[in-house]
Design a protein around this nucleic acid. Sequence first.
DNA 1: AGGAGAAGCGTGTGCGGCGCACGCTAATCT
DNA 2: AGATTAGCGTGCGCCGCACACGCTTCTCCT
Lengths: 151, 151
Amino acid sequence: MTDTTGYDIADALGLLLRRGTRARLYTHLTEGLGEAVDELTYPVLSGLARTGPLSAADLGREIGLDRTTVTRRADRLETAGLVQRQPDPVDGRATLLTLTHQGHGTVAVTRQRFVTAIEDSLASWPEADARTFARGLRRFVDEGPFAPQRD
Amino acid sequence: MTDTTGYDIADALGLLLRRGTRARLYTHLTEGLGEAVDELTYPVLSGLARTGPLSAADLGREIGLDRTTVTRRADRLETAGLVQRQPDPVDGRATLLTLTHQGHGTVAVTRQRFVTAIEDSLASWPEADARTFARGLRRFVDEGPFAPQRD
DNA sequence: AGGAGAAGCGTGTGCGGCGCACGCTAATCT
DNA sequence: AGATTAGCGTGCGCCGCACACGCTTCTCCT
């Protein structure tokens, strides 16, 4: 019999990467967190959480957006009190984007919601299967064909 | 010790769903297939491949886009010879969007590239592990918290 | 040491994706 | 048959995005 492993994974990933899936996910994760947090601004927020204080240009490189786009999204988040700007003490040209306390809290909430949703869906799995799957997924994503930028 | 399964999966999925990942994937899959096929038009193409001939309105519901957006993307694909319009024989108001022979070919190429990339990245895995992972991923996506629209 | 060029920032502007709203035709329902 | 519903194309307006400009600050070379 022929091996369908690649096709099975392709189907599953295809579904996962669909627009509707992403939209539903964002809607659920950011619900009730204020209108400043949406599918557009969240990557700025979570990028900052990942990297720590960063200039708009650097953050743009990190998340694959133009510097000016990052600036304007950060404007909204700053107005909402989730992000703060401060002059870089080391470089007088640069402005560092930083998460406020509330900003950290917002990221923590969305991340926790994400984890909870995953754990709920894994609740019916034998624990060993769940662990195996988690390890496999991590490996697949980390060394996968299109995951991190290696350049 | 605490269980980190949910966090591991969340991290991996987070990386997978990032903008940059998606962009790199689309770039690779659609390379050299003509400028009509890109991240915007491809969902129309693959949606049609999935469902068969469909009206713009129905296809819009399928892929989560406004009817008019689908119409305009289909215009480009039609110009490029990948999609064809024909009046619905059953409903005089409707226009069915259909893949041309070339359109089917384009979808086949991208899908094959996707499968190949996945299989390449799995080449170093023990075959049993790869199969287990594929089964797990399918299950996770199918019954997962945000996969198919159940409404 | 000082001037040139590079690198940071904000913001004005143009392009393009998106969906609402309009006017139309065809189907359906009473 | 008339009214309502559902399909289509297309003209807007809105907004995300990045390029381009002018400015400040750093860095580097002479």
